[in-house]
Design a protein around this nucleic acid. Sequence first.
DNA 1: CGTGCACTTGACAGCTGTCAATGCCGGTGG
DNA 2: CCACCGGCATTGACAGCTGTCAAGTGCACG
Lengths: 244, 244
Amino acid sequence: MSDDWATTRFSAFAQLSDVRLAELKELVGPIRHFAKGEVIRDEGDAAQAMYLLCSGWTASSMVVAGGARQIIKVHMPGDLLGLPSLALERAADTLSALTSVTLLTVEPRALGRLFEVSPHLTALLFLISQEERVMLMDRLASLGRTDATARLTALVLQLHARVLRNNPQAGATFEVPLTQENLADLTGLTEVHVNRTIKKLRASKVLRWSRRWITIVDEAALRELAGLPERKLATDLSWIPADQ
Amino acid sequence: MSDDWATTRFSAFAQLSDVRLAELKELVGPIRHFAKGEVIRDEGDAAQAMYLLCSGWTASSMVVAGGARQIIKVHMPGDLLGLPSLALERAADTLSALTSVTLLTVEPRALGRLFEVSPHLTALLFLISQEERVMLMDRLASLGRTDATARLTALVLQLHARVLRNNPQAGATFEVPLTQENLADLTGLTEVHVNRTIKKLRASKVLRWSRRWITIVDEAALRELAGLPERKLATDLSWIPADQ
DNA sequence: CGTGCACTTGACAGCTGTCAATGCCGGTGG
DNA sequence: CCACCGGCATTGACAGCTGTCAAGTGCACG
């Protein structure tokens, strides 16, 4: 993992020069640490704050009337947290640590500066935000129109793709530090039903899943079950400003 | 409605000068027309295209394996369509006309130019994208963790807020050109169950709803039912680049 | 070796989906 | 002007996926 958390998301679209990389690192604030379970930022908080995740996983979640919790997405190292609520007076989501976590705080002003000094990085950050929208769209279609099995497999595939991006040498086996309650909050199901569904998936031999480790055995079958196509990032970026 | 479709979304955050407005209008292509029901852009299409909606409503939808359709969001005049799929090789969503529609095509290169010439407009467009993410997050929490009544009321409130933004003089009564099948595809329910739920809402007197016209009778009660708080856009934009 | 958190499992209830038929309304053609 | 027609709304009966409740199991940790 070393020092590449800052560029993971950017380099999915384009390689960054050393100059650009230095520019990025100038924009961040002090490093902070959170223990598993701690809340980083609560929904309703007024602060316009962003965080660059260095290590560990975090969750963005919302609580609806009645007390039920929906996890909007889980974040992995390299993800920029808190962007959506930048558009709001008060934060819409709660950010909490799913594991032990380290992150950097990023001031909104730093973002403003980025817009001024680098149209190239701006375009990449813009694309990252659009990719986030696509991931949300896929999750929405999954929750709205598919059953428990499909929701869970779609989630597993999405998580796997993202783990692979951070760890290209990782294979079909990867660690998912989520409890079944977390998975329930992600998929809009209950803990009990998540358990039942995992049991069925295990029985059907399309994946192995014990403790927090998942092995994808039959990816084609999983993708069939998930009901959503694989998403491939754009490669034709000729329209974005050059990295001058 | 006249000529303000181009600025609706931007002016939610900040007023645009005439110079900025002229800049925006230079970026767009020819105007196009679609009849109700027509497909503007299909999921899977390779084209990286964007559209600025001038009049009418459109839907962004996805079809999951099994044929079920999920409407990701409906667009109203002033909305910029096709942004998320800009990050992908192939479009993730289908854009279709819910009513008779006119729109302008926008080339990706125009966006690149915007990034170069105006950090100010770039920041506003960035904020608009973040606001879209928040709306998706709210929908996700709604579909994942609330029942049919809450989903429908949350949708009505969201649509009302957006209609009000386009038509500030509109009051509690507004037109929603959606069939109950459309509402079902939006809420992840079935046409039949949407009908049952509307019937209950009517009976409880919190709103009136006949044909395609909705009147919000008891907004507080509706918000209670929806289970999600009202979202207020950020007013402190001191961090974004000045409109020089 | 106890304690706690997470995982499992079973029985039962309920919200929502499915299937199928009927009603309503606006538009069209004679 | 009126009958026909197609799309959309409405309703009823029934099934099924998922939630609820409750109890038991197993592994990690002090």
